[in-house]
Amino acid sequence: MWFELFLVPFLTGLLLAIVLPLLGCYLRLRDEWLAALAYAHVAAAGALTGLVVGLPPVAGGMLAAALAGAGKRFAANRLAGGASYALLMLAGWSVAVLLAANQPLAERLAQALFDGQLYFADGRQLALVAGGTLLALCSLRALSGRLLLARLYPDLFRLRGLPLWPVQLGFDLLAAVLLALATMSLGVMATFALLFVSPWLAFRRGRSWRHGLLWAVLGAVLAYSGAFALALLIDQPFGPVLALLLVLLGVAFA
């Protein structure tokens, strides 16, 4: 009983609290931290669309985010400077709100997606998040050097005859799918908070890249664990408690 009620949701969120700040560091490296909000909103719209057309919401959310992640590359020249993420966020939000307003089924799910539904995570969701986390950790480890190199010495890829697009497309897809998965469990703003605050602190405080990644994960895991316990103790929604704790952490250590 206790296991089903608290341990499964806790572990689901804990895995995301480990992997999201790592992803956030690489998004920050690429000046793409707005991607978190964009993919989260697109995932929410995709989940609601999935529900309306009879698909599992998780599949709809991940499919929509993956399509957005792959598709934005084709419009990269016209939508430079983060414009693609702002447009994706607005489009995702609009579709989600319109579906929620017109479909009774979608209204409840929309509320859960935007507020977060971590305490309702079940074993299936934990397995999905665990798989996604493992995939993300392996992918980030493999892509890390190339992502840093693409930022600092982009010419090196051409000089060494290495294609850059698989690195960029692979990372975009990974970010989109992972953020969709996180949005389904934590909600839009809690996902954004985990992805933004501790990487931001890590970039300010880290002595090196490796040290920065460690800082980001430690900060997020501490804030997450504290928020999980506190939200239960004071019987408040988890997402806002987590976001507030992370904001306090950010103000205290920035």
């Binding site: 490296l29 050097g145 840093l148 190199l149 930022r151 600092l152 010495y153 010419d155 090196l156 000089l159 060494r160 890590a202 970039f203 300010r204 405080r205 880290g206 002595r207 090196s208 890249w209 490796r210 040290h211 920065g212």
Partner: peptide, 26 residues
């Protein structure tokens, strides 16, 4: 194999990257 140094400095402001890590990258 070619190596190219340009006048544009790598964008390291605000990035937690050590010199040792930079050299390892290339």
């Amino acid at each position: 194999r070619l190596a190219l140094q340009t006048q544009e400095a790598p964008p390291v402001d605000g990035l937690p990257l050590s010199g040792r890590e930079l050299l390892a990258l290339t």
